[in-house]
Every structure is written in C-alpha cells, then in structure tokens.
Design a protein around this nucleic acid. Structure first.
Length: 719
RNA sequence: GCCCGGGUGGCGAAAUAGGUAGACGCAAGGGACUUAAAAUCCCUCGGAUGGUAACAUCCGUGCCGGUUCGAGUCCGGCCCCGGGCACCA
C-alpha cells in the first residue's frame, strides 16, 4: 500500500503526486498491511471461458478482460540455492516460465525487491539495502513500475541450474513483480528482450539456445531472438523444435521432481479492505484465542456508527472508537476487537443489479421468485468499468450461483458501454503539490478563433488558474456539468434530444452546449408541423382513410417512400446499432421533406402527411417522451404514445421511381446518372458508354474493364 | 511501459459488408418578413485555381508507405488525444 507517514493513512494511487501524499506532502512509503481478500483467482478459468457466452458484449471489453485475466501456460521450476546459510529464509527459488524450451539459456535469476531473499541478502549489503529502499519510494501502481528505468543489483546469492548444475547469480531487479507468480524469474537474455537489455547493461552472459527454423540472420549483439525455433546447446534436447522441447523439458523436470506444468494468471486476488469510515463494515471479530471469527448471522448487518469524530489526520475514525471496535467473541464470549476496515465499494456495485429485483426482502439477498428476471437483458455502463466493475460483478454472480442464489452463469446478457464525457480541467496548486480543482463554471475562459483555450482565470478573484488535461467528468476533477440549468431553460426533452444527437453513445464526447438551441428549434418545428396538420380542412377526414385505397401522385409517393425509409432506418439504428444520433438525423430529414410541401392541396396530401407526422412522433418518442405524448394525441390518436406498438415498414411504399448511380472513370467520379432501379448490368454498361462524358474520356483509350455495382455505381477502366 | 478506443470542414458528426466523403445539426455570412427586435422562412458555407456566371479542373478523412478498377473503411510503420493498469469508483 501507499502509506502516508504524516497522515498515518493508506493513500490511493491518485492521491500520490510525484511520490508525495496529496494532503501532507510527505514522501510516501510502501507498506504491507493485513487485508481481507476475495479469492477471485479460483474463478479465473471460468471468468475466462464464460466470456465466450457473452456474444452481445462489445468485443473490446472481452479483449480487455482476457488480457486482464492473462492466462498463460508454462512450467514452474526450482533453482536450489548454493550453500544456503542456516538463517536463510528460503533454500530454493521458484520461477514460472512460458518458455521452458529456453531453459538451457538461463544465465541469471532475477527476484523482486520485496522478495524475502532480497531482504535477506540486503542485511550485509548496504548497496542492496539502498536499492530496496529506493524502490519502496515508488508508488504501488503498475504504470509507475513499468516506466522505471530497468535496474538491478547482484545479491551475492548463487543458485544451481536444475539441469546443467551451472552456478548462476541472483539479481534483485526493479521490474520483477512480487505480485505476479512467485516474484522471481529465470532470465534468458538471448531470447527475451527485457532480459537481453538487462544483461547488456550489467555485462551478464548471453547464451543462445534457440536457432531459427528457417534461414534468418540472428545477431544477438543487436537484440534478443524471441521467436520460437529449434534448440541448440541444450544437451539431449538439442534439435527439438520449441514446441517439442516445451513438452520434453516439462516432462523431464516433472520426472526428476524439479518442476511441473502450471497455468499462471495475471489476475490477482481482490483486496476488499479499505481503511475508511464510509463503507460497509467488514463483519469480522478478532479474538485473542479464536482468531478471526465471522459475525454471526443474527448480528448482521454491522452498522456504521453515526456519531463519529473526524480529526485532521486521514485515518479512519472507527479505529479511535472503542464503542464500535470493542466486541464479544461469538465463539468464546471473551472480549474481542471488531474489524475497523470497511469494504471496497466495488463489493456492493457487484451485486446491486440482483438486489434491485428484491429491494425490500430483509431475509435474503435475493428472493427465489425474483430470479426469473435474471440475467439483466441490457446493461449500460461506462467503458472505464470494462475490467474492474464488470469483472467483479461477473465473479460475484458466479459466487451467488454456487451458493444457489441465482441460476445463470453470467449477470449481463447485453452490454452497451457508453463513452466518457470529457471536459477541461482547471486547478491551482498548493506548495505541497496538492491540486485544487476548480469547476469550469467558475472559470472565465479565453479561446482563440480555433476554439483552443489560450488562458483562464477565476471568476471571483480574476487571477489566472492552471489548465489541466481534458479528462472524463468526475467529482475528483471537479469538471462535471449539471444538466439541471439546461433542463430549467429548455426542458428535459430538449436536453435528452441534444445529448442523444451529439454522438453515438459508445464514443467519448468533449462536452459543449453550443448545439442545445438547435435541438430546441427542432422540437418547436415538429410542434408547429403537427399543429398545422390539425388545422387542415382534411384533418378529420384523413384519420379514417386507408392510405392503400388512395391513388397517389409522384410527389406523394416520394414522401411516403421517404416516410417508410425513415421508419426502416430508425428501427435499425435504435434496435441494432444503438446509433441514436443517426436515428434523429433521419427523422430530421423526413421533417425537412414534410415542410417542403406543408400545404394540403388535396385529401391525399393530408393523408400522406398524417402518416409522416404520426410515424415521426412514434420514432422520436423514446428520446423525447413528453412532447411526443402530447403531439400523438393532438394528431387524433386516442391511446398514449407509450402504449403504441412499434410500426412496421410497408415494403411496397419503399420503392423509388429513380435512383442515382455514380459514373466513375478509372475510379474517379466523373458524373452521375438518374435511372430506374434494378436495371440489368448490360443495360447499365451501354447506358454508361453512350454517355457524352464517357465518350470524350475514352476516345483515345482502350476500355479494359467495366465494373458495375448494382444500383450504386459504374466504373470504366481504360488506358 | 503494457492493454483498449479514437483522430474526417470553423465546431458536433455521417458514410452500416471496400463503391458518389462531409448526411443531419451548430456556428458564421447574405436575404425576406417587421416601425424595430425576437421568432420564422429562403440562400451560401472543405481548400485551391480558372470563369461575369452556370460551371470546370486539381487537392482533401492525423503522417509515411502498400494492396485494389476503386481506400475515411483493409495491411505495415509512425505521431497525437482519451480510457484502464488492481485504493478515483
């Protein structure tokens, strides 16, 4: 954990700025503290395999979860320490490798700075002690460690290669993660790029044991050769391919009891302890005799005390409250202590979707009869939850399934991940390095004519503020926008329409409220068109007429075709593609066509327009429910628009009299043709060749090829 | 550093299975209506060159290269922006 020695508290990664605590400014240290974990690694295989069931999840989320779980097959093997002293904490170093075929190329073993042997070796080695101490100033985040310059130091310890019996040095290296595998790796600089760079830096030997299968230049003075190939310098295994050697070496090690095949995961167990007040208390009582005892069911839930005192330190007030922490051991009735850590809030967000179907059941988490609602048909959440929340929920669901609370494997059938809403951040920095974020509404922004921010100052004191990156809206960055003022001014329908029209939901969006008035204008226009319709002399009559019985002229047919094309597109956009922006644009186009012929010269006009307006109202109703409710009834319909079933496309209405076909020459658009739809290929070709533009183009050339894409384009290739 | 997205006019975007780039909207400019304003309606609106004009020609989807009759879309390499990296949730 990141430990702030001044505030005496654990800090989140985002609370550590340049190695210092955000409030105290103290240098942060790594510290190990006892914590509760959920053993998610026991479910790693299922969490990976069941991803195949999630066919209605975005593929990038599946990919991210696969990488996160990080299954790899390899071999775990042991390097024995050469002559370990009596006080040595271990006599062996366990390593995991996915490349047992390179085992004969191992020239050193690298261990993590927190590895017990690193600490042991440091006792008589000031340089190593210093190296480990320096590493403990690095914050816990993986990103932090991955960007460190690779460095290491010889521990002085030596191990024996399990097959060759060669003596190899053990190095402490800052890129070996204690949290992955056993915190130790065998290093093969000839065939691993990171090991190669480390060996170059510290002049460690590089031993080639793989040669390419096919003639390729390998120059180990330039880079490692990381491909698989054929083994060399590998005793009885020489000559085998990497794949053959994987099995042969794994079997050999297993027979000699020096190692075995193993599946390793990148996924780590889930730490659920938080040293905070706000959170669900972890229901555990510590007894001097009985150890950690769960709180008995009849005493659940353990509730947070409400009378708490927060002091200036960042540590949890629960620790200072004997009234809360003193307890009786449920086993032996002696006095005991209550756990004062609370649960990670991901704990609750992992199963709320299931609790929603039985919110008032105070006997069980989930009612048996409520299970029929699961899994959730359509789940919607931000892409930033692609791994953590969505993996924890899947894990929790499987636990609930295994104790019989639910009966399906996965919690969410379909998943839509909306993109993040991004906005500028503004802040001022205290001398400690702590950033105080200032809300965009409180900042006066000066932009250049391209819209780029030149400078910003605080509205109150008129002094400059610093401009941060664009980031997802969040409380911690204070860059959120409250839609309430917009709702007050324009109404909820306008704001909903504006948001849905801005971009498809899965795309991230830089917030700007400049198009809001356009959305409002559109709704006013829809309102006017509907009311013009209701004023028409044909309005009452047109409601009872079956459109199919009428004879329509070309113009009316065209509008009717547009109406049904719009219905078809909007149904697909909303139902399948979830691109609400293009659905709205399609209705806007239809209403543009309606306004172009807004006067009724005949009953037929009124009927066609009634259909266009009624359909537009239904199509928009999921997005702007309030205005469409009113307009639907204004159009003479008796039921509520929300109760109307989604309309079906009249295929016969779709047909257009003429379509436009692009005419290309050598792939370049030259002109367009207006023709009847579904013409024969030969007809289109001769039509194209008789075109004046074409004859001019081909007069001094030979036509090589004519490509016809039906109802789309003709491309004449000539030279 | 690793994994996942994205980059198209002044701006938000569209182009759904490789086939007419910029639909729809915002902003801007011009005009109509009005005593005036608001509201509304009409027109222009990627860039360059030529033309009084209708229009014509060339360039153009982050950058470099490739595949193809044809690339915003596919392939290789690179740059930039956003998200995640296990205690922001």
């Amino acid at each position: 954990m990141n430990w702030d020695p001044v505030d005496q508290t654990v800090l989140a990664n985002e609370q550590v700025i340049d190695g210092r605590g955000w409030r105290s400014g103290a240098l942060v240290e790594r510290r190990q503290i006892p914590q509760w974990f959920l053993k998610i690694t026991d479910y790693a295989e299922q969490l990976l395999n069941d991803l195949d069931q999630l066919t209605d999840w975005p593929s990038e989320v599946i990919r991210m979860q696969k990488h996160w779980i990080g299954r790899s097959e390899g071999v775990e093997l042991t390097f024995a320490l050469q002559q370990p002293a009596a006080d040595c904490p271990a006599h062996n170093i366990e390593v995991f490798t996915t490349r047992p075929d390179t085992l004969f190329g191992v020239t050193y073993v690298a261990i993590a700075p927190q590895h017990p042997l690193s600490r042991y070796a440091a006792q008589n080695n000031p340089a190593l002690t210093e190296f480990i101490t320096a590493f403990e100033k690095v914050k816990v985040a993986e990103a932090e460690i991955a960007t460190l310059e690779k460095a290491g130091i010889d521990t002085g310890l030596r191990v024996i290669h399990p097959l060759t019996q060669t003596i190899l040095p053990v190095w402490t290296a800052n890129f070996v993660l204690m949290s992955y595998g056993s915190g130790a790796v065998m290093s093969v600089p000839a065939h691993d790029q990171r090991d190669w760079e480390f060996a170059q830096k510290y002049h460690l030997p590089i031993q080639a044991v793989i040669e390419p299968l096919y003639e390729t230049l390998v120059d180990l003075t330039q880079a490692a050769f990381i491909d698989k190939g054929r083994l060399i310098h590998s005793a009885q295994f020489s000559g085998l391919t990497s794949a053959e050697a994987f099995n042969a070496i794994a079997q050999h090690l297993s027979e000699k009891q020096l190692g075995q095949r193993k599946v390793q995961y990148r996924l780590r167990d889930w730490s659920v302890s938080r040293q905070r007040y706000w959170g669900t208390p972890i229901p555990i009582i510590y007894c001097g005799d009985c150890g950690a005892v769960p709180v008995p069911e009849q005493d659940l839930p353990v509730q947070l005390p409400t009378e708490v005192v927060f002091d200036a330190s960042g540590s949890s007030p629960l620790k200072q409250m004997p009234a809360f922490s003193q307890a009786i051991c449920p086993c032996c009735q002696k006095s005991a202590t209550r756990e004062t850590d609370t649960f990670d809030t991901f704990m609750e967000s992992s199963w709320y979707y299931a609790r929603y179907i039985a919110p008032r059941n105070n006997q069980q988490m989930i009612s048996a009869d409520a299970q029929k609602w699961l899994p959730v048909d359509q789940y919607v959440g931000g892409i930033e939850h692609a791994v953590l929340h969505l993996l924890y929920s899947r894990f929790f669901h499987k636990i609930m399934r295994d104790v019989g609370l639910v009966h399906c494997d996965e919690p969410f059938q379909k998943l839509l991940c909306q993109g993040m809403v991004i906005a500028e951040t503004f802040y001022r920095e205290e001398t400690s390095g702590k950033k105080n974020y200032i809300a965009p509404q409180e900042v006066e922004i000066l932009r250049d004519d391209k819209g780029q921010i030149i400078s910003a100052k605080h509205q109150q004191d008129q002094q400059p503020v610093l401009i941060g990156n664009n980031e997802k809206m969040s409380k911690s960055k204070n860059n959120g926008v409250d839609p309430q003022t917009m709702i007050d001014q324009f109404g909820a329908d306008t704001v909903r329409l504006f948001i849905m029209f801005a971009a498809p939901p899965e795309q991230s969006l830089h917030w700007s409220d400049s198009a809001l008035e356009g959305a409002h204008r559109f709704l006013k226009r829809l309102w006017r068109l509907v009311h013009q319709q209701t004023q028409s002399e044909y309005f009452t009559q047109c409601q009872t007429i079956n459109i199919a019985a009428l004879t329509l002229d070309a113009r009316q047919k065209e509008l009717r075709s547009k109406t049904h094309q719009t219905l078809k597109k909007v149904s697909d956009d909303m139902g399948r593609r979830h691109t609400f922006n293009t659905a709205i644009a399609a209705v806007m186009e239809l209403l543009n066509a309606v306004s172009q012929q807004k006067t009724h010269r005949s009953l037929e006009d009124a009927v066609v327009m009634q259909e266009a307006l009624s359909l537009s109202t239904i199509l928009l109703s999921p997005i702007v429910p309030h205005i469409t409710h009113t307009l639907w009834q204004a159009l003479g319909h008796t039921e509520a628009v929300i109760d109307v079933s989604w309309p079906t496309v009249d295929e016969t209405a779709l047909v257009s009299a003429q379509i436009e076909i692009a005419l290309q020459m050598n792939g370049k658009l030259r002109t367009r043709l207006w023709v009847e739809p579904n013409l024969e290929q030969a007809t289109l070709e001769s039509l194209a060749l008789s075109n004046e533009m074409v004859s001019r183009f081909i007069q001094d050339k030979t036509v090589r090829k004519i490509i016809v894409v039906p109802n789309k384009l003709i491309n004449i290739v000539a030279n």
